[in-house]
Design a binder for these strands. Structure first.
Lengths: 296, 296
DNA sequence: TGAGTAAAAGTACGTTTGTATTATTTTTTA
DNA sequence: TAAAAAATAATACAAACGTACTTTTACTCA
């Protein structure tokens, strides 16, 4: 047990399973339901819960008191909280990392960062996200041209996607915005093309304007951004939301980079052999041109 | 949309994010809360939710109706259901993301990537690494000039470090290598300066040569690379080794980016107030110059 | 058999809930 | 600048809620 005040759901269930054999028949029914339906239990009011087991509401009140709670709601809150925390694999490790970090100042910062990173990545590999990544990959493979746009703090993302992506898929290119060339570059976006745009808060004005223009020109948009409220979202075909929170003064791009690499992996997996030979050819060329370092 | 009867939470949030720009101010506040606190929204009654946003309860009712629901509870139930499902599929499996992989081909790739990413980051936050990060930060803060070099697949790393870093520390600059300007740029590296160089296998020839020249010129070197046998290591003052392995055809830069952000965090933590005012001034300037997007 | 005693169900009540309605403020339009 | 419209806040109320209390049931033991 960690704290008598607010036991975790797991601790509680373990405690309950020990008490179980000695409970009265009705309390057993109630306890059994709780053990096997924690989520429903957390969400439903006492009356609905009681109905589900065909038991009087007061039975669940007695159960709460048997477990040492003063009120029914305290019991239910335990399970609501466990829902909120999501009890994810990474998050729990992250928490322990943070606890560990308190020792010295810098380690604290780093540990907190680690926590954010873990949480961000965990979200990234959820089912919903994976299916979106697949959608995005589909779009990339189907489009005649793919333009990648990211400015300022998002430029690293755009560059990474465009550089690595173009090795495997020659129809991917980076939208450059040096010396005010952005809007000239936009002219190269044709109807039916795909634009992949990156923007994190505070959003760079040009990125927003550029993607609106692209949509007007008949292009499709995939946006990678930090919130569903981002000005990039309206009009986007696929929205890839990433976690950018961090104790730092700038938004973290770690999850975005991870997303990019996952996206590329899926593209290659779908792209088949054609793509593999393309990659091999690129490697060969680099070697022939002396682009790579070889010892002595 | 799949079913008009009971849209999924994700569909709903996407729908909402499309509507978002046209909502009234108060409805935006409510919508924003919903988009970023789905779990709390599912658990709390309307009054608590309204209080959290400092909005009248009726605002949330209007939000529900705006989204096409007849009653507030129907909206909340959508998120309650998504809680139930999310809980069942994921966390109850509890162990590792990799287990999740087998289901379909693409998900397998993604899951394996998740594993690599996780391992890489875990290594990064070990004690040994943290102490090296501190050494590196010390060097950065002590040097009169810091040059950041990374080419090809490492350019995103170099750019990220230099761009974000220069916001807080004006003595950080990116070494550019466009149109063969690399060696001209190297002339700017003085004795006592610091060079931070990135290179991953297969190592780009110019990066290796450039850092050797820099050392000859009396500069110190921090290298961020994927192996202790990397040609960048000899002569380096601090070596930061990162994990780049991944099922992909290119080395992953996720851990490098994470390292960069940790490094910056430590720099800022040590840099004190001077740095904070510098960051604030940058923000102010960007806002004044209209660099950031603001709604309407 | 019938008092005694847990356990369970039922009842009643003050709160809190969602919601329709009305009032107020803000914004738009003429 | 005044009127009209829209958006927001306040109010009121019935339904549903948790919970204390009472009644009924089931069982134990003189």
């Amino acid at each position: 047990m960690s704290s008598a005040d607010q036991p975790s759901a797991e601790e509680l269930l373990e405690h309950l399973s020990q008490l179980y054999p000695d409970l009265s028949p009705q309390l057993k029914k109630a306890a059994a339901y709780l053990m096997e339906n924690r989520v429903e239990f957390a969400l439903q009011p006492i009356r609905k819960t009681a109905d589900a087991v065909d038991v009087a509401p007061s039975t669940f009140m007695r159960l709460a008191k048997t477990l040492g709670f003063d009120r029914y709601d305290s019991l239910r809150q335990v399970f609501q909280r466990s829902l909120q925390e999501g009890q994810g694999n990474f998050s729990s490790r992250a928490d322990s990392l943070i606890e560990l970090g308190g020792r010295c100042e810098q380690q604290g910062v780093v540990a907190e960062m680690a926590g954010c990173t873990y949480r961000g990545i965990e979200e990234l590999f959820g089912e919903e996200m994976v299916s979106r990544i697949k959608q995005a990959a589909e779009l990339i493979l189907a489009s005649p041209q793919v333009h990648v746009l990211g400015l300022r703090d998002s430029y690293s993302c755009a560059y990474h996607l465009a550089y690595v992506g173009s090795v495997a898929m020659s129809h991917i290119r980076l939208v450059r915005a040096q010396e005010g060339s952005l809007f000239t570059e936009l002219a190269r976006i044709d109807k039916g093309d795909l634009l992949i745009a990156f923007a994190f808060h505070p959003y760079t004005r040009e990125t927003i304007e550029a993607s609106r223009i692209a949509i007007e020109q008949g292009a499709q948009l995939i946006c990678i951004t930090d919130s569903l409220r981002s000005p990039l979202v309206p009009g986007a075909k696929v929205v890839l939301e990433v976690q950018t929170e961090t104790p730092n003064f700038f938004p973290s791009i770690v999850t975005s980079i991870t997303l990019i690499e996952a996206l590329l992996a899926v593209c290659v997996a779908r792209g088949g052999k054609k793509m593999l030979t393309k990659i091999r050819r690129f490697d060969q060329q680099m070697e022939d041109l002396g682009g790579y370092y070889t010892e002595e």
